[in-house]
């Protein structure tokens, strides 16, 4: 009983639970360097995830490059996405997408699933995350398919 309480306490300490005020986001729990649980419980669609990554407005290819021969302009400010599914587990990818500042406070990776602690967000983007929970799941599902040959 006590061990279980301690575990709950530990999980809460590590928990990425948004405060009650931001009820727009689904709660998630960080364990180590990952968010092991799906945000939605609905399996991510890898094909949709690929579309999300390639869409200019989502900004992924500004910084990242990857196995996208049809895309002319890709960035190199961030790691190439080839093989990323071999390097990181689903849960690890999920945390990096949701809020990479949890791992590196100085990161240039935007927090794609955060609405608090941001400065001067443009009106049209305020109070909503850059990607929805399901979009995060779709991207995670897609990135997990990018295995080293």
């Amino acid at each position: 009983m006590r061990a279980r309480a301690a575990l709950v306490l530990a999980a809460t300490v590590l928990c990425g639970n948004p405060s009650a005020a931001q009820s727009a986001l689904v709660p998630y729990t960080i364990v180590g360097d990952a968010i092991p649980q799906s945000l939605t419980g609905v399996p991510g669609d890898a094909a949709r995830g690929r579309t999300i990554v390639l869409k200019r407005e989502n900004t992924c290819l500004l910084c990242h490059s990857g196995p996208f021969p049809e895309e002319r302009f890709q960035g190199n400010l961030a790691p190439d996405l080839r093989g990323v599914g071999s390097r990181w587990s689903e849960g690890e990818l999920r945390l990096r997408l949701v809020d990479a500042t949890r791992l590196n406070p100085a990161t240039i990776m935007p927090p794609f699933y955060r609405i608090e602690g941001l400065n001067r967000v443009a009106q049209s983007f305020r109070d909503k995350p850059a990607l929805t929970a399901q979009q995060i799941e779709d991207v995670v599902a897609y990135l997990e398919t990018l295995k080293d040959k």
Binding site: R56, T59, L61, L62, C63, R72, F73, Q74, G75, N76, L77, T101, A106, I108, P110, P111, R114, L118, N119, R120, V121, A122, F125, R126, A130
Partner: peptide, 28 residues
């Protein structure tokens, strides 16, 4: 130096730390 916007970036992060790299087809 301050991070801003939904993308949470500061001028410095791009223009001090990542100049010369490729931001999707343009040199930073």
């Amino acid at each position: 130096m301050q991070r801003m916007g939904q993308l949470n970036l500061s001028c410095s992060q791009c223009h001090n730390d990542n100049w010369g790299k490729n931001i999707a087809g343009n040199i930073m």
